[in-house]
């Protein structure tokens, strides 16, 4: 893969084919964990690791797995890595385990991972599959970070727990609550669409 190709792929994953904003995959964890920067970033990194590892393994075993059990074996591989990440987080970052809770094991059913396994890793050699996992994971993680920073600033007036507006800022708690998650994500998707459409018209 040349540098130019990688760059194109990166733009594709981050913007034009962003898994959350354009493909609308993995909405559950996107909406649920983005209450603050720490949670959003933690979930983003965990998902990226699982996505990259499962893409690698699935691409390695792709020639041995017969059609009938393809999905079943993908699910085994994916849930294996998810469990591994879950155990590691619980042992070394217990705070993150507490705040993400059930959404760590639920990475298994994050459609992004199965979608990339099925659409890319099962048809391509290991190296491109790893790159694909990394890029798509980055697209997911960056969206989570943007969403959680916006919600944390408006909801609590902080970034990563640091107060930025001074003690008297009360924050619109609604944005940090479930209802705010839907509304913020809706507005972000609309904004991305607006700019993507605009840039397409130019070309």
């Amino acid at each position: 893969m040349t540098k130019g190709e990688f760059k194109l792929k990166l733009i594709d994953g981050l913007l034009l084919n962003n898994p959350v904003l354009v493909q609308l995959l993995g909405m559950c964890s996107t909406l649920a964990v983005t209450t603050n920067l720490f949670n959003g970033l933690g979930m983003g990194i965990a998902t990226t690791i699982v996505l990259t590892m499962s893409n690698l393994i699935i691409s390695l075993i792709r020639k041995f797995v017969p059609k009938q059990i393809r999905i079943a074996s993908f699910i085994v591989v994916i849930s294996g890595f998810v469990t591994a990440i879950e155990l590691l987080i619980r042992a070394y970052v217990p705070v993150l385990d507490k705040s993400l809770g059930i959404f760590i094991p639920l990475i298994v059913v994050n459609c992004i991972i199965l979608a990339r396994a099925e659409a890319f890793a099962s048809k391509n050699p290991p190296l491109p599959s790893v790159v694909d996992g990394l890029v798509m994971g980055l697209g997911f993680a960056s969206t989570l970070v943007v969403l959680s920073v916006i919600r944390e600033i408006i909801g609590y007036g902080t970034i990563g727990g640091l107060n930025i507006f001074g003690e008297n800022f009360k924050g619109a708690t609604l944005i940090a609550m479930p209802a705010g998650a839907f509304i913020t994500l809706g507005i972000i998707i609309a904004t991305t669409r607006y700019f993507v459409n605009k840039s397409k018209q130019k070309c």
């Binding site: 479930p178 209802a179 998650a181 509304i183 809706g186 998707i189 609309a190 904004t191 669409r193 607006y194």
Partner: peptide
Amino acid sequence: PKAFRGIPLALISAGLIAM
């Protein structure tokens, strides 16, 4: 508005129901 058509508007309505 064009950018809001479909999913974005659906998400915002879901937010209002959640409220």
